[in-house]
């Protein structure tokens, strides 16, 4: 199930607004295709990110994948639980496996992202 309380990027990140920050993680489809995740290199808190730029790396047994910032802004917080238990992304991609939070983003950029239905059909068509 693709939760409909959040937005999605075509590069398979999900983005959920939570007050004045957005929470970012990767979709169930993304964790499934990466396989067992073994390491996450998180961005630094305070780092400026721009939409579409790579800001962290996920390593699995099969691949090392860049994760792209879905919005421009400043990294407000990172999920440091992932340092010790990167498999949280496999186990709970939409909840405990969140990766980082962005503050100071432009709400208008949110509109460029897909909703749950849009993401699901994007997956079907690709």
């Amino acid at each position: 199930m693709t939760p409909d309380d959040r937005k999605y990027a075509e590069s398979h990140e999900w983005i959920k607004v939570d007050g004045d920050v957005v929470v970012v993680g990767i979709s169930d489809h993304a964790q499934e295709s990466l396989g067992d995740i073994t390491f996450v290199e998180l961005p630094e808190v305070g780092a400026e990110v721009t939409k579409g730029s790579d800001c962290c790396v996920i390593e699995s047994v099969k691949a090392a994948s860049d994760i792209y910032a879905p919005l421009s802004g400043t990294i407000a917080e990172v999920n440091s639980e992932l340092d010790a238990t990167p498999e949280l992304i496999n186990q709970s991609p939409y909840d405990e496996g969140w990766m980082f939070k962005i503050k100071g983003f432009d709400a208008a950029e949110l509109e460029t992202l897909l909703d749950a239905a849009g993401y699901s059909s994007f997956l079907e068509n690709n």
């Binding site: 073994t38 390593e59 699995s60 047994v61 099969k62 691949a63 090392a64």
Partner: peptide
């Protein structure tokens, strides 16, 4: 191990 860093994947 740690092969994900390697050129055949990256």
């Amino acid at each position: 191990t740690l092969q994900a860093r390697e050129q055949h994947i990256r």
